[in-house]
Design a protein around this nucleic acid. Structure first.
Lengths: 322, 322
DNA sequence: TTGAAAGCGCTAACAG
DNA sequence: CTGTTAGCGCTTTCAA
């Protein structure tokens, strides 16, 4: 390991002078500046940011807890977020809560130990207030993403409720009479506690439409696909909305196998494969999301800030109707 | 911020005693142990791992540089890697090189500054030996993933050469007479410098088969899709192999648009959408990969270790042949 | 069994 | 303009 002491010795200055020279701070003579930079480059010196942070109490790392590693939506936003953080001189540490409170707490502990400046997480339950307050006691900002569970936290969510309402209205306007929504079932959370709620938007669209409808709440992980397929076969919908890509794929696979036809389909979370299959989807707004995250990282507000991000419905010629 | 001093004061012991008690190391009386733990839990104390690492010189973080954030393959392996690291008490920092040497160097600098124990990266070029040696000078192990560019580094690669040979042999055995391989064009690397090389396996399979063939090297990012489609239209293949999902999607989109038929298709990097579309793919072995990464992180070898991971061809009823 | 002291690598305050 | 000193939070001798 090469330290600033090594650089200082080689340049015949004190460590503090070397430090100031390298950071271009304060008054440094041209000669000192040059000799320090020369020494640093010859030695291959790179400042230990761990020690810097300890000293300056200025923690330039952000923690990101992904709740569902199978959900590609997370990864589609990750590189934008990382790029934005780099532009702001920050690092990104990621962790996975696997949709359960115990892992979520472990993630928190690990990120708190690393003294990240901010933790972004998608709450898997409403019982982890303890560790959240420990984070805050340690000067860490905590922001909940995509699920508004803890009312006292900064919150950034996609407007899934309105997205789902749009999707249902569109299906109705296309002539559907029997709509099925595959919403999310949370293992450690009452559905009623979770905002935004796709079912709410769904019901608003259906109110007074005269159409039949059904809602299945389906787990994000460790699910039994039979529950899904039986419900489809029993209800016989002519339009289906799925809350995630994964559920969407299960639905599509089932419909294809059974050679169903004429069932219209919209899923949350657009991607290139949906585009290729000319399937309709609800597209999240990554730009606004990244921007909100940047703001959350860079500003320190008092009152909890709530951000609601609008989303688009992308209609495509539905392959299943061909 | 809550420090061990706070805990020590509340428990009426010295910081060093508190430290030993919390880490269950050395001789500690039952009473001290209990009072220290009580104080820590009441205060919500979590040890600052930054300071711990500075002291113990034991860096429990791994850096991972993703070269292409559009390539979902990276994300499909990330959660397994992260889980494995967690089990071994380590953290994961990710960074993105965006397939260019400048960003790659920036990533290295940032990870070296964080004093990660190991850096995994997919080389985007062969000119960054300088920063790699700086990493090593700072006691950081460097492992190249998926591309064998620097001969003196630990290396973990998928056996794309054999995978491509298998794919080509299979297409030939299915009766194809005109094979097109869409291989990767590297912006900052001569193709000949990159191992494994899909084209090599492709050519081995074709040798003596009497079939016609063509190879197009296509960029991973910022590509012109017209180059791809024109080549397909000009060569009129009856079998296509693509090196990435992204190129694969472009090929499929083109073939669908033009209502081509009877063209067999195999792509690298299997996923659930390919499965749904009943498209054939070459499937990487994530278990072996994760295991190799664990070994690289946990053991310190002298000579550079080279790991070659075998992969499977998954044949599915090709939707385009229906 | 516990505490005092030193020091990991770095920077900020203060003298010079 | 530069060096000395102290200390971030933690652990590790070493002495008590």
């Amino acid at each position: 390991m090469i330290t600033i002491k090594d650089v200082a010795e080689r340049a015949n200055v004190s460590p503090s002078t070397a430090s100031r020279a390298l950071r271009q701070i304060g008054y440094i003579s041209k000669e000192t500046h040059d000799s320090v930079f020369k020494a640093a480059s010859e030695l291959g010196y790179i400042a230990n940011s761990t020690a810097q942070q300890l000293k300056t109490r200025n923690f330039r790392t952000v923690g990101f807890i992904i709740s569902d590693s199978n959900n590609e939506y997370y990864f589609s936003i990750l590189s934008d977020i990382q790029k934005m953080l780099t532009e702001n001189g920050m690092n990104l540490i990621i962790a996975f809560s696997s949709e359960n409170p115990v892992d979520e707490e472990t993630c928190f502990r690990s990120l708190i130990a690393s003294r990240v400046s901010t933790i972004f997480f998608t709450p898997t339950n409403d019982q982890n207030g303890e560790i959240i307050s420990v984070a805050k006691k340690n000067g860490i900002k905590v922001v909940q993403l995509f699920r508004d569970i803890y009312s006292d936290l900064d919150t950034i969510i996609n407007d899934d409720e309105s997205g789902c309402r749009q999707a249902a209205e569109t299906l109705l306007s296309l002539g559907c009479k029997r709509l099925l929504l595959i919403d999310v079932e949370y293992l450690y959370l009452e559905s009623e506690r979770v905002r935004p709620d796709r079912s709410t938007g769904f019901l608003q669209a259906l109110k007074g439409s005269g159409a039949e409808y059904d809602i299945l709440r389906f787990p994000l992980v460790d699910y039994d696909v039979g529950v899904l397929t039986q419900r489809i076969d029993a209800f016989r919908p002519d339009g289906i909305i799925t809350a995630t890509n994964i559920a969407g794929l299960e639905v599509l696979t089932h419909l294809k196998d059974r050679e169903h036809a004429g069932i219209r389909f919209i899923t949350f979370d657009d991607n290139r494969w949906l585009q290729f299959c000319t399937l309709s989807a609800i597209r999240q707004n990554t730009a606004i999301l990244t921007d909100s995250i940047r703001e959350a990282v860079c500003t320190q507000s008092e009152a909890p800030r709530k951000v609601l991000i609008p989303q688009d419905l992308v209609l495509r010629r539905d392959a299943l109707l061909d």
